[in-house]
Amino acid sequence: MNQIPMTTRGAEMLREELKRLKTEERPRIIQAIADAREHGDLKENAEYHAAREQQGFCEGRIQEIEAKLSNSQVIDVTKVPNQGKVIFGATVTVYNTVTDKEMTYRIVGDDEADIKQNLISINSPIARALIGKQIDDVARVNTPNGEVEYEVVKVEYI
């Protein structure tokens, strides 16, 4: 399996979720199943079936997180010398030549991506266009509304 790039913050968020699922959610669901069993006939016991379904989701998510963490390549961009190049984990300020506005994005792993916080996935079209660029370079991104040009204004490793 390919290594999954993630920032230090992204790996920490996954570890916290995994801990919560194992120490809080799993025991709560097991208790819900035990309580539902006490109500008798399991065939028509909605609480039992709902709890079993929750258990399946919880165990699936635990396995998914463990797999991601075991295949992760944690990149702490603050420990990389800033050569002015856009790399994974970098915070990039770009000038959108279409909207005439500046935007700042941080390029992160898929699990961390949140456009509302300007965190964009390494696999997004804009991030792929920006990787390897330097200040004053122009990245062209094909969007549903046509090509958009982003001029790299600032690259920070923070």
Rank of each mutant, 00 (worst) to 15 (best):
I65T: 04
T99Q: 01
V108W: 00
I122F: 10
G56H: 15
T93C: 09
A90P: 04
A51F: 10
E53K: 15
I120A: 03
I126L: 13
R20C: 04
R37I: 07
K79A: 14
Q117S: 15
N118K: 03
A139L: 06
L18T: 01
E66K: 05
E147S: 03
Q73A: 13
E102V: 01
E38Q: 06
D41G: 02
L21D: 00
K79R: 15
N82V: 09
I126K: 07
L21E: 02
D111N: 04
A11F: 02
A51Y: 09
E149G: 01
K133D: 03
I115V: 10
I115N: 08
G84L: 09
E38T: 07
E147W: 00
C58Y: 01
I107L: 02
V141R: 00
P144H: 07
E53A: 14
A51N: 14
T23I: 09
N45Q: 05
Q73R: 15
D76V: 08
I75M: 05
G84E: 05
I87P: 13
L42Y: 06
G132S: 01
S121C: 11
A127F: 00
T91C: 08
N96L: 00
E16Q: 06
A36E: 07
V148P: 01
Q55L: 14
E112Q: 11
Q134V: 13
Q83A: 13
I30W: 06
